[in-house]
Design a protein around this nucleic acid. Sequence first.
DNA 1: TATGAATGAGATTTCATTCAT
DNA 2: CATGAATGAAATCTCATTCAT
Lengths: 205, 205, 205, 205
Amino acid sequence: MSINNESRERLIICAKKEFLEKGYEKASLRSICAEAELTTGAVYFLFKDKAGLFAAVVSKPIEELNALMMRHLAEEADEDPAGYIHVPGDHDEFAAELVELLYKYYDEMTILLHKAQGSGYEDLPDKVIDLLEKGYLGTAERLAGAAPGKRVNRYMLHWMTHIQVDAFIHLLSHERDKDKALEHIKPVLDMLVSSFVEYVIEDDK
Amino acid sequence: MSINNESRERLIICAKKEFLEKGYEKASLRSICAEAELTTGAVYFLFKDKAGLFAAVVSKPIEELNALMMRHLAEEADEDPAGYIHVPGDHDEFAAELVELLYKYYDEMTILLHKAQGSGYEDLPDKVIDLLEKGYLGTAERLAGAAPGKRVNRYMLHWMTHIQVDAFIHLLSHERDKDKALEHIKPVLDMLVSSFVEYVIEDDK
Amino acid sequence: MSINNESRERLIICAKKEFLEKGYEKASLRSICAEAELTTGAVYFLFKDKAGLFAAVVSKPIEELNALMMRHLAEEADEDPAGYIHVPGDHDEFAAELVELLYKYYDEMTILLHKAQGSGYEDLPDKVIDLLEKGYLGTAERLAGAAPGKRVNRYMLHWMTHIQVDAFIHLLSHERDKDKALEHIKPVLDMLVSSFVEYVIEDDK
Amino acid sequence: MSINNESRERLIICAKKEFLEKGYEKASLRSICAEAELTTGAVYFLFKDKAGLFAAVVSKPIEELNALMMRHLAEEADEDPAGYIHVPGDHDEFAAELVELLYKYYDEMTILLHKAQGSGYEDLPDKVIDLLEKGYLGTAERLAGAAPGKRVNRYMLHWMTHIQVDAFIHLLSHERDKDKALEHIKPVLDMLVSSFVEYVIEDDK
DNA sequence: TATGAATGAGATTTCATTCAT
DNA sequence: CATGAATGAAATCTCATTCAT
């Protein structure tokens, strides 16, 4: 890209710190710039505005997260519905990749999850949930279709998708160590997968 | 004394609206007062400051919530551990009361859950989780103690308490109708209670 | 006076404290009234306004001080000019009375001297100096008139009156104990009286 | 850099005027900025805050005053104690320099002496007195040591230092013309120097 | 006598943003 | 590529004062 990435990067690092401490709205461009030994004008030259600076901090993690989600969803669509018969450890691979990503961008994820109010990115979890829910809906319908007298409970589908996402958010908020995180997430996923079939697919009427 | 609470109440109503729209920090005393047709000075006379006004909006709901939690916890402590063997519909009574309360103070609860950043009340869910977790730990230990070769998985205990609380938050955020909410919450609770025994109580080592 | 002096007096006591701590301008009627367990309205009923409350705190000490000054000046006017020939201990009597008064109203005097900015009483020392200077001018002129080739240096007269007053202010600011104060003031007065003759009465041309 | 100090200087000039009129606390940034045809934000950019603006007004005079004091004290320390035997006109040189400085910064000095309450600079005279007193204590002790049966009266030392400083404050407050001021101060200094030896050095017990 | 309610004006400060250079 | 200067709007809060009751 540009020749002098130095100021840009210094600004991103300092912004990350400030956003993490104070949240998007309370973060002060002045403080960020003072820390980066630049003036506020530089932000407007390099990033257009405060929102642009925030985007520069979080966009790469978001893109990688999106890519991972899409791959996960595509794989799930290819799967045989029978695969949803619960086998403990099923989703370990995806979970491992996700955890890897989440902890690689620990600060950025923390900002996105807890410090993004007012930034236009505050609804990332909701977006992820929507995305996943659509994918899971296909699976659930195939499952329900294959069993007579069954149908999908849409509220439970949404909620279970929600707590699945929440499980990772919770993990990130409560466990700073990646390896311990991987240990924690296993029974959680088992529970989620097993409950999915039992509570999302309900008796017709 | 204060027979004439009119201004006070007008202020609370307008504040509720503003907090709901903009969140605690972005809420403007000026706007609130303009809407209530009073000057900002009136806020400082009637409530001490912005925080005091916020407290006036949310304190009653919080107190009632706390009282309900305490009662719930006390009842649970009295229960026979055998009671935890899952019978669908088990916790319906408590759930019903809780839903009743949550929807009675729908706006206030929404504010507390999503719009309280910076107010000193932002950690209400965490506090509730802590409270419940302590109560549930007792139950879980009695359960584990009664079964040989079992022990409590503390991370799962915390997480399951977390998603239980989250279940109600989710409900409030996604379903405006109280009766539908009651329908939604039933299978959720069933799942929670049943999974609790299975995943919180794990094999020793 | 009025039947119920209680509120009035409580207000005066609390006001004295507040003025002493914060000075006239920074003193807050609200704080004073809160401390006195009354409302601000009471001040306006009992004292007209903030200035009136201040006056109520300081007027008695001022009156007594004025009375003492007048007496001192009258006595001095009666004196034989020869009396100004310096005899150490000369003015001890007046000094003792003044010190007595100053320390009887220690708080009030402190307020008047250091905490009265903005109250309309900030120039008390100047007024006292003016008063004394007029009296001393008579004495000085009689003295100069009695000695050929001598005249009064007006600037020195003013300055010496100034430091005489200042001597008492200084005393009050640096010595809380009345008896020690009386010890300190003696050589000061000796110096002042002796220098008076020497420097206020100068050679003609 | 700052070739364009225009706003900064306009602000300082207007601030000086406002502080002189109303004192530090009552001075209004709004008024200052309105007069300077700038917004209050400019003050916060150019000086950090109200205190910073005040400092910008008075810091140079203070530094020069301090430098002069130090030089005076250093010279005095070098002097032969015998030098204290009173020769009228002794200290004229120092006095002349001091008066020069005081009248060069007439407005700033007036602000510092009478309008600085609340600014953190209100105790300038006390600081000067402390500084001088320490220097004079050395002189007084050498003097007392050289004469058998004599000792230093600390209260008189402090008070005489106080009135020395006060003499210049008095001068500044009562005489706007520098040359007349120089005339006035001469006999004052004579009196001070001569009384110093007589009243600060007292008989032992 | 005194209260409780409210005003209205003012205070300092902070912020994102702009723009000529 | 970045600075330095400045804006303008908004923020919370504090105060002396008033007045019907």
